[in-house]
Computed example of a mutant assay.
Amino acid sequence: MYKLIVVDDETKIRNGICNYFPWNEIGFEIVAEAKNGRQALDYILKHDVDVVLSDIKMPVMTGVELAQELHSRKSKTKIVFLTGYKEFDYAQKALVYGVKSYIIKPTKYEELLEIFSRIKDELDDEQSREALLQGQAVTAAPLVEEVAEENTEELGYHEKKIAAIKSYVLEHYKDVTLEEVAGLFHMNLYYLSKYFKKWSGQNFSDYVISVKMEKAAEMLKDITYKTYEIGSFIGYDNAKNFSRAFKLYYGKSPREFRDSPPVSE
């Protein structure tokens, strides 16, 4: 899990962001909250933090001042701004300090998902490169740029390994994690992320979501299951989060899907 800190002087907004978005399902853990940039900076200087989601206008230290301070310290912590329309130009100017993106208030589920999924991919790439440079993946089979360079025996090995990983996910999709699978298959965490993407054609997190959604769609055909029960069964504690995720995947809410399921060919 990548470590995230949420910074906003409005308690209601801060709590909403922390509690009503499924951060753990897209690979993030909220390790701290702060009500201004100074509190956030003090925490970051003492702990490892991968990403900061910060409001711009705050007392004591603004989000831009926090970004400037982290930039001057050559911090690798990525920053995403929360901003109102009136602060939009102000937010854009802060891109010089390495701010990755900005989200217009009020925050939208789809926008958070899109931006943080992209940031997770960036973090995966960075960690993978670091691990390879440090020789942490010496026990894993080497990746190459072109599949054509692999001989038939090696190709079969990779296909079997991906099939085994997918089989495990199919059995433990409710709460499976990349860390868990990496340990089970004796692979470096960040190497596994790249390996799975290369040989399966999709991100590990995307594959887990597809398994969950397809299982949910199957269960929706049985009217004895309530929607919240299905969400809980596949690993969503919050029924609203399940409904949002399902609609993003199928283009229909669970209720709409149940009323008009796709016609099988």
Rank of each mutant, 00 (worst) to 15 (best):
V6N: 06
D8T: 01
D9K: 01
E10M: 06
E10V: 09
E10P: 03
E10W: 06
T11A: 09
I13C: 07
N15W: 00
I17P: 02
I17E: 03
N19S: 08
Y20C: 05
N24M: 08
F28E: 01
E29S: 12
E29N: 11
E29L: 10
K35H: 10
L41W: 11
D42R: 04
H47F: 15
D48T: 15
L53G: 01
K57P: 12
M58T: 10
V60Y: 13
V64Q: 07
L66F: 00
S72K: 12
S72I: 11
K76D: 13
K78H: 11
K78P: 06
I79N: 00
V80R: 09
F81L: 06
F81C: 01
T83V: 06
G84Q: 11
K86I: 14
K86R: 15
D89Y: 13
L95C: 04
L95S: 00
K100L: 11
Y102T: 10
I103K: 13
I103P: 13
P106T: 03
E110K: 15
E111Q: 08
I119Q: 11
D121K: 15
L123P: 08
Q127H: 14
E130T: 15
V138A: 11
A140R: 00
P142Y: 02
P142E: 04
P142K: 01
E146A: 03
V147I: 05
V147S: 00
A148D: 09
E149P: 04
E150K: 11
E150L: 13
N151T: 03
N151M: 08
T152N: 13
T152R: 14
E153W: 07
L155D: 08
G156C: 04
Y157M: 15
K160Y: 09
K161F: 02
I162D: 03
S167F: 02
S167L: 06
Y168F: 10
V169H: 06
L170R: 12
L170N: 12
E171I: 03
K174F: 14
K174C: 14
K174P: 10
V176F: 13
V176A: 11
V176T: 10
V176N: 10
L178R: 15
V181Y: 05
V181Q: 11
G183F: 00
L184N: 03
M187I: 04
M187C: 07
N188I: 05
N188P: 03
Y190N: 12
L192A: 08
Y195M: 08
F196T: 05
F196Q: 01
K197S: 09
K198I: 00
W199L: 07
G201L: 04
Q202A: 15
N203S: 13
F204L: 12
S205P: 07
Y207E: 03
V211F: 05
K212S: 12
M213W: 03
E214P: 04
A216V: 02
A217S: 10
E218A: 08
E218W: 04
M219P: 05
K221G: 10
D222M: 00
D222E: 08
Y228H: 13
Y228W: 09
F233R: 11
I234L: 03
G235A: 13
D237M: 11
N238S: 15
A239R: 04
S243K: 14
S243F: 05
R244I: 09
A245H: 08
A245Y: 07
G251Q: 10
E256R: 12
E256L: 09
S260E: 09
P261I: 01
P262Y: 04
